[in-house]
Design a protein around this nucleic acid. Structure first.
Lengths: 156, 156
DNA sequence: GGGTTTTCTTAACCTAGATTAATGGAGATT
DNA sequence: AATCTCCATTAATCTAGGTTAAGAAAACCC
């Protein structure tokens, strides 16, 4: 498991590629995202040091996600073999819970509620990534997030 | 692993309970959902025969989801022990992929696109559950889905 | 099978957030 | 230091979908 250095803005995986890998972030910050038919980016997740980031497609299927570096990073790259999946189901269940919460929040909470939830849950990431990417993660435009923050201030 | 009979409308798990179980559906149809602060239901998933349904919280944490039966069903109930999770990571990865797609679709597709995607992916479930629950799964009101279907017809 | 409950549909109106466009600022590049 | 690119902000306008309300049609239940 040789560590690999990645420069900021470097792309590790492009949508449509095969044989997608698992990236274990030793330091720095990675991100996964899609680009839809209209050309818009949608951030799927952020992965700071200690996190694991991967496209959840089986390795023989084309990937849905791009993965790139938001900061200079060091990552371990691992193959998606069934064996390693067998050895630790716990992190998979943890990811399932995160996604379950994300789906339920997207369906039931307003943009401002989702933003406040994000800041409370990931204060570190909030400081490290551009506002527009947080907006994208939340499923709103940067303009909308900017307005929401202003209204939030005026209320308090 | 004794099978358990469940009557339609019977609730298997309530939000806030502990020691949540895994339900393997032998026949019939189960559903999981939340109720938000405003009292609105949000369907998280449907599970027809052959599917597995569970809240992804660890067993020592309170559940987020209700689980009930939409049809008379027969289910196997299993404890969430770490051992059984170890034995099959593959279904967990499959669930992750489903949720990944769900999140990306919620963020990038319109209500009508999400509906057409649902019908194409789950034609069987579309026939078996009330429209309002599909609307809830898609994150729209039943009124909106009704209008969208009408517009869809007029376009073709 | 008749009444009750639930679901679906329609329509009028309303609002959260999208779109478009313009401006200013902060970093990077030369 | 001047130029360029990216990012955040503001404001005006627009629209997808929400809300409310009411009636019709299924489905359910003694």
């Amino acid at each position: 498991m040789h560590p690999q250095k990645v420069k900021k803005k470097q792309i590790l995986q492009k949508s449509g590629e095969f044989d997608s890998k698992i990236y274990i972030v030793k330091s720095g910050l990675l991100r996964s995202y899609t680009i839809d038919e209209k050309g818009k980016e949608h951030v799927f997740m952020f992965a700071p040091e200690g996190w694991v980031i991967a496209d959840n497609v089986p390795p023989e299927q084309p990937t849905m996600l791009f993965i790139d570096a938001l900061e200079d990073s060091v990552v371990y790259v691992r193959k998606k073999d069934i064996k390693s999946e067998h050895q630790n189901a716990a992190p998979l269940v943890r990811r399932l819970l995160v996604l379950q919460k994300r789906v339920l929040t997207l369906m039931s909470a307003s943009a401002i509620e989702r933003f406040e939830d994000f800041v409370a849950t990931y204060p570190d990431i909030t400081q490290r990534v551009p506002q527009r990417m947080i907006a994208s993660y939340l499923g709103v435009t940067p303009e909308a997030l900017s307005k929401l923050k202003r209204e939030q201030l005026q209320r308090s």
